[in-house]
Design a protein around this nucleic acid. Structure first.
Length: 552
RNA sequence: GCGCCUGUAGCUCAACUGGACAGAGCAACGGACUUCUAAUCCGUAGGUUUGGUGUUCGAGUCACCACAGGCGCGCCA
């Protein structure tokens, strides 16, 4: 409904031009129709005359002038003009916009969801932090981006799976066990040397204390004790991570354990496939993967000369497993410090017979916390990182998520803790939420009047003739384009920016125009507009996982 | 040394995959509360898009070269 109207107008225009012999039949016209940045330029703009110019050997302006003649008679067009070096700007009749509002009101916000996925299955893997310590702020950003991307793809015609991968088979968990073991000895009064390469955070001590206070039976021998404590500590930490994520509004369909790859035999299957295809080869007593066959990267080791498989092997198997579970497209969300890992993994899915495009990456750049105008230090090794929990508790979940989504994910993020806490106009979170609360407030007042709020859908949208009202309708319909653009480019932050823009129009309108008044029919039409607007705001806030308060 | 990311108003960032005069917010300055919530609005000022070369009707966007910052380059995990 939305883009079909402008497309139809241009197509008719082309038809006319063809029948008049203005355009040769064999010319390929891949022009675009866009909504111009400048509102004064009209509802839509097309560059078609620039595309035609080289074929017709005429100036774009002249072509535009000819094309415009036939558009002028189009019943859908309110205005048409040639602008600048040859753009064709045109606007739709108000009645069409009013009609769209009516359609959205009766069909719901869902009618604005575009179908970009055509029911493809997409698996988004994110966070995937090993349970060796609490989630820090960087994980939080990844969690927010992953969660919102999943929501976004789900709204745009994809079947979405959310997964968290845990390297439980590796050495990190065992190191955690050793760390806990030594802290335990410390608490028992045996002053042991605590090496630098163990986990330094206080949480390890807390877990050790828990073992003592809870009278947890730890096996006697050192090896057995370390094994036991590795299990014990990691499961406590994992519970903490799940709690943090839950409170942050992030859930997963599955926590995938690396160890299950060994149990199910996918690891062996992967190695067999690679050997069969000659992509795995032996050298210096190790088994190598021929990365160079697909990407500009060096060959990598799959099995070390001591017989141990590398993490890379598990990762290939994991991705094979994902495809086997009939996911068509995989999205991996990683910290940007892992970007060097991309070529080999991309190469591996090609080795498995997949297209490059079936595996997409989203890199999450670091977060710098700002407090009192100065950056807060953050180093995992020293154990002085700032946790997601701390930030969430300090600024609140809504502000935290909103701030994470105000930047493109692969750009550095400066997170100003003081700003996020401030309840003033400097803080964009409240700007958006306030709009929602204001609309709800109008509705509360409207219910005091004789207007039947249940029957708003009968309202006469043709009464919405003020420029600001028509603009609001246009901005509402734009939700459709925003969802499409963010889904296609995997850029959830666009939704956040859209919200700020949309809501800005509303605040402006609110200050200028009084909604409730004596003209009942007009009031009803305006309330309908606001109801739809409210629904879009609420839907978009829900999409980014921020609450939509009815009162502030 | 090689590779990836980033460089846009004083600050933090946009710019719909190449479109029109590069836009917001904050900070600065000036205005609006007997009116549905002033957590709001209206206005003013602010720029050689780090620098250069090229591609074309047209470049913040694409290519190449500099410069600056961040990150990564193991039979580590």
């Amino acid at each position: 409904m939305l883009r079909s109207i402008p497309a139809k107008i241009i197509n008719e225009c082309i038809q006319n031009a063809r029948s008049e012999g203005l355009i040769p039949a064999d010319v390929n016209l891949n022009f675009i129709i866009e909504t111009p940045r400048e509102e004064g330029f009209g509802d839509y703009s097309t560059n078609i005359s620039f595309i035609l110019a080289p074929h017709l050997k005429k100036k774009p302006v002249d072509i535009a002038r000819q094309l415009v003649e036939s558009m002028k008679g189009n019943p859908s067009c309110k205005s048409v003009s040639v602008a600048g070096p040859g753009f064709i700007n045109f606007s739709l009749k108000d009645s069409l916009w009013q009609g769209m509002l009516h359609t959205i009101a009766s069909e719901g916000v869902q009618s604005l969801y575009p179908d970009v996925g055509s029911s493809r299955n997409v698996l988004i893997e994110f966070v995937s932090a090993n349970p060796t310590g609490p989630l820090h702020i960087g994980h939080g950003r990844g969690a927010a981006v992953g969660d919102v991307l999943a929501n976004l793809l789900a709204r745009t015609g994809h079947n979405v799976g959310r997964e968290y991968y845990i390297n439980d088979a590796g050495r990190q968990i065992r190191t955690l066990g050793r760390s806990t073991y030594l802290r335990l000895k410390e608490l028992a009064g045996e002053m042991a040397d605590y090496p630098q390469d163990l986990y330094q955070g206080d949480y390890v001590r807390e877990i050790a204390r828990k073992v003592i206070d809870g009278n947890i039976p730890v096996p006697a021998g050192e090896e057995e004790a370390v094994d036991f404590l590795a299990d014990y500590a990691s499961s406590i930490i994992m519970d903490g991570i799940k709690k943090d994520l839950g409170d942050f509004g992030v859930t997963f369909d599955r926590y995938f354990l690396e160890s299950t790859l060994y149990e199910s035999g996918v690891i062996d299957e992967t190695l067999e496939i690679l050997k069969e295809r000659g992509i795995a080869y032996e050298r210096d007593g190790a088994l190598w993967f021929k990365t160079s066959l697909y990407e500009k990267d060096e060959d990598r080791v799959l099995i070390k000369s001591d017989g141990q498989k590398t993490y890379f092997t598990s990762d290939i198997a994991y991705h094979l497993d994902k495809y086997k579970r009939s996911f068509d497209v995989l999205v991996d969300i990683w910290g940007s410090d892992h970007h060097g890992y991309i070529p080999r993994l991309r190469a591996s899915v090609q080795a498995l017979g997949r297209n490059k495009e079936d595996l997409k990456f989203l890199l999450i750049q670091f977060v710098t916390l700002i407090k009192d105008g100065k950056p807060v230090g953050m180093s995992t090794r020293a154990g002085e990182f700032t946790t997601l929990r701390e930030v969430m508790d300090e600024v609140g979940r809504d502000a935290c998520r909103f701030f994470f989504l105000m930047r493109k994910s692969d750009a550095h993020l400066e997170f100003d803790l003081d700003l996020a806490k401030r309840t003033t106009n400097e803080n964009p979170v409240y700007y958006v939420q306030y709009a929602h609360a204001r609309i709800e407030s109008i509705f509360r007042n409207a219910r005091e009047t004789r207007i039947d709020m249940e029957k708003l859908k009968d309202a006469d949208c043709a009464l919405l003739t003020v420029k600001e009202e028509l603009d609001l309708i246009k901005w509402i319909t734009r939700y459709n384009n925003v969802l499409e653009g963010s889904a296609r480019n995997l850029e959830p932050h666009r939704v956040t920016f859209y919200l700020i823009e949309l809501v800005g129009r509303f605040h402006s309108y609110y200050n200028k125009t009084r909604v409730l008044g004596n003209d009942v029919e007009l009031v009803r039409a305006r309330l309908l507009l606001l109801a739809v607007l409210r629904d879009v705001i609420k839907d978009a806030l829900g999409l980014i996982g921020v609450s939509a308060p009815v009162k502030m």
